[in-house]
Computed example of a mutant assay.
Amino acid sequence: MFAVFFTTDYAIFSIAFVVMLGIGTIEAIGLGFGHLGLDTDIESGVDAAGIDSPGVLDWLGLKSGLPVLVWLTALLGCFILTGVAVQQIATALLGSPLHWTFASLIALTIGSIANGFVSAGLGKIMPEYETSVIDTEDLIMRRGVVLEGAARRGHPARAKVVDRHGQAHYVMVEPHHDDDVVAQGESALLVRRNGPLFFVQPDASSFKPL
């Protein structure tokens, strides 16, 4: 029975299953690893791609408040279940499964719709995730610590910022003032943002006007 999952027409769903298990393991072991480097502003990314309709975000389940990896795991699960169901129905009706390209397109379409409902349901039963997902702008006026190198104007460095929920975020920062330098291990106040880059004011120069 399981031999069919190694055939060409089922292979894409088998691969998706392995990927889903891998992501699920990361989430289980890391207990929210999706916030470390993958805590992306989903709505901003979608807007940048030209999809700015709230209805589209709701339909995809992207506004459910779930971390990216949890949402992706749910999407893969819906894709796999739908794909296997499509191939089983096709085999029963036509005598053989559909070509994997047609089956995957159907599964992706139906699975994406189903995932909108699944993500909404997960968002309701996992309130701790809803409260820990913040807008990137909320990091402004919080202090971060430079982790690697030194941040100079035109030469950003990686910094760690902890939000009001205690979640760590890793962002790129550079000084707000041209003559400031924030060395490794020093803290600075995030004062503004330009895309993915944050501008900071070192604690030692906090008296300077913005």
Score class of each variant (00 low, 15 high):
9 D>C: 05
46 V>T: 09
127 P>T: 03
152 R>K: 09
61 G>N: 01
201 Q>L: 12
80 I>R: 05
190 L>C: 00
19 V>Q: 04
105 L>P: 00
190 L>W: 03
83 G>F: 01
203 D>M: 05
1 M>E: 14
145 V>R: 15
54 P>Q: 11
202 P>Q: 05
29 I>Q: 02
109 T>C: 07
166 G>V: 00
6 F>K: 04
173 V>M: 01
68 V>I: 13
57 L>Q: 15
141 M>I: 11
23 I>D: 11
204 A>Q: 12
66 L>N: 01
154 G>V: 05
64 S>E: 08
115 N>S: 13
151 A>D: 08
40 T>G: 08
207 F>H: 12
61 G>D: 01
119 S>N: 15
98 L>K: 03
136 T>L: 11
19 V>K: 02
127 P>R: 04
12 I>S: 09
196 P>R: 03
122 L>M: 12
48 A>K: 08
30 G>L: 06
36 L>F: 15
81 L>S: 11
43 E>I: 04
74 A>D: 06
77 G>P: 07
76 L>I: 07
116 G>R: 03
106 I>E: 00
84 V>E: 07
108 L>Y: 09
107 A>I: 04
8 T>Q: 13
154 G>F: 09
112 S>A: 10
85 A>E: 09
100 W>I: 11
129 Y>P: 00
16 A>N: 01
32 G>W: 10
107 A>V: 02
111 G>K: 01
135 D>Y: 14
76 L>N: 15
38 L>V: 00
56 V>R: 08
50 G>A: 13
171 V>F: 07
210 L>H: 10
52 D>E: 12
2 F>I: 11
124 K>Y: 03
118 V>L: 12
95 G>D: 09
181 V>D: 00
92 A>N: 02
1 M>R: 12
155 H>P: 04
120 A>T: 10
60 L>E: 08
41 D>K: 01
63 K>E: 12
117 F>G: 00
29 I>T: 06
158 R>W: 10
184 Q>D: 07
172 M>R: 13
23 I>L: 15
55 G>Q: 09
84 V>N: 05
52 D>V: 01
20 M>T: 06
14 S>G: 07
91 T>W: 14
44 S>W: 12
46 V>Q: 15
210 L>R: 03
186 E>S: 07
89 I>K: 05
40 T>Q: 13
159 A>T: 01
113 I>L: 13
77 G>V: 06
6 F>I: 05
206 S>V: 08
186 E>C: 00
2 F>H: 07
171 V>M: 03
180 D>C: 02
30 G>S: 08
110 I>R: 01
194 N>G: 05
69 L>R: 00
89 I>T: 12
119 S>G: 08
83 G>E: 02
80 I>A: 11
97 P>S: 06
130 E>M: 10
123 G>C: 02
38 L>H: 05
19 V>C: 07
113 I>N: 02
125 I>S: 02
174 E>H: 06
210 L>P: 08
92 A>C: 07
176 H>M: 10
43 E>N: 04
29 I>W: 11
174 E>G: 04
124 K>L: 03
